[in-house]
Each structure stands twice: as C-alpha cells, then as structure tokens.
C-alpha cells in the first residue's frame, strides 16, 4: 500500500508508536521506500525479511529461503515444497496480476511449533478479475474456487496451464492452511476442506497467506532411476 501511494506521488508518514516503530525499525520501511532497497537481512533469525518481488530475481529468492532454512534448522529435510510454493506464487504475480512491480513477500519461522508463515501480496488486478476475463459470469468467490482447479488457467502466458495454486496447497500438510484474499472474496483451504466467504470491501490485489509445518516434511531421499 505504501509503495502504491508513493507511486502516485503521495507522501506517507509513519507514526511513532509500537506498530510504527516496528514497521520503521524492524521491517526497515525507510530503507525500502526511501532508499529503494528490495531486500534487507533481518537481525531476527526467525524473521525472514520483507522482499520486494522482482521479475529478474524471481528464481533467486525462493532458492535463498530454502538454503537458509536447510542451513539453519533442517539440514536433512526435503524442503523443495517451500521453494516450489514460493516460485508458483511469484510467477503467478508476473503472469497474471498486472501489479506494476508492487509485490512483496514476508516470512516468519516459529521455531517452537516448527511452522513457516508465508505472505505474498500484490496490488494488481486480483485473481477474480483475471479469472472473469475467461468466465465473466462467475462471482468473486466462484472465481477463487475456479482458480484452484488443476486444469483451469487464464493462459496469460504460454507456460500457464493451471496447477500453480494447487502446488501451493499441496505444500500444506496436516494442520496447515492456505488463505487467499482477493477483490470481494476470501478462500481458506486445508487438507480436508475449502471454504469461501465474501469480503465486505473491495481489495484491488491479492494476498496469499499460508503456513507450512516443516517437521511434517520427509527427509531427503534420492532415487537412482525412475521411468515413466
């Protein structure tokens, strides 16, 4: 939101209180929005920093996150689902969102419950708007459900064939959830069920938020040969 306002030429002030100080000091808002940084390392090992999602770094950030988690917490686990879910989220932004480079991600890792919390947000057109270019008759809630179907794609680019959001959901294990808020709708999906609800306001953009319990992931195992 700050980035969008800045792009429109507005001046943004952050009040000095508990939240304001956290945004300014812990999340380094000044460095991002005054000095135009894309990423700054955090002093807190559990906070994996705010990252401005840029198309030329789209493959780099997921790789760095995976390496960091393996190095710091889980050297034996196959964490490829973490990297995969981030890749799919980021490519979705540049394939469909029309976000004018205003896309961000943030992650936190809770060492006590071994859970990674991921938020990826953009101020683009929103998933329902993109889906309704293909099927205009859908409501926003129906459009979010449609976007989750494995074979549905708005085919914005040649390499789209659906499946992307499904890979993010597949990374979630027991007790995890994926939440999508976009335009006038919200979708929450777990391993057992998927529900939607209307949003009381219009959100011009998309927020994808999910939790991954990393101790549920398998240990890494290499197979010498696998044939189709």
């Amino acid at each position: 939101m700050v980035d969008a306002l800045k792009q429109e030429g507005a001046k943004v002030y952050i009040r000095s209180n508990k939240m304001g100080d956290y945004l300014y000091n812990e999340l380094h808002f000044k460095d991002y929005f005054v000095d135009n940084k894309n990423f700054l390392p955090s002093h807190d090992e559990s906070l994996l920093s705010l990252w401005r999602v840029k198309e030329d770094e789209i493959d780099l950030h997921p790789e760095l996150i995976q390496q960091y988690l393996k190095r710091t917490f889980f050297s034996n686990k196959d964490l490829s689902a973490v990297k995969l879910s981030l890749l799919e989220s980021y490519y979705n932004i540049f394939d469909h969102a029309e976000a004018r480079n205003n896309a961000w991600s943030m992650m936190m890792y809770n060492e006590e419950c071994h859970r990674l919390y991921v938020a990826v947000g953009d101020l683009g057109i929103g998933i329902p708007t993109s889906v309704k270019r293909v099927i205009p008759s859908l409501s926003d809630e129906e459009a979010l459900l449609k976007a989750m179907e494995p074979t549905f794609t708005s085919m914005s680019r040649k390499h789209n064939r659906g499946l992307g959001l499904g890979y993010i959901k597949d990374a979630c294990t027991e007790g995890d959830s994926l939440t999508i808020v976009s335009n006038h709708a919200k979708l929450v999906t777990t391993q057992d069920r998927t529900t939607t609800a209307p949003m009381p306001f219009l959100f011009r953009g998309t927020l994808i938020y999910y939790e991954l319990t990393l101790t549920h992931f398998e240990n890494e195992e290499i197979i010498d040969n696998f044939e189709i």
Binding site: D78, S80, A81, E218, E220, E221, I222, I223, D224, N225, F226, E227, I228
Partner: peptide, 10 residues
C-alpha cells in the same frame, strides 16, 4: 521412452 536418474522421492 522417458526416465529420470538421481531424482528425489518428492
């Protein structure tokens, strides 16, 4: 006609 080698289980 298609095979993979040194592939992870996941």
């Amino acid at each position: 006609n298609l095979a993979f080698e040194k592939i992870t289980a996941q």
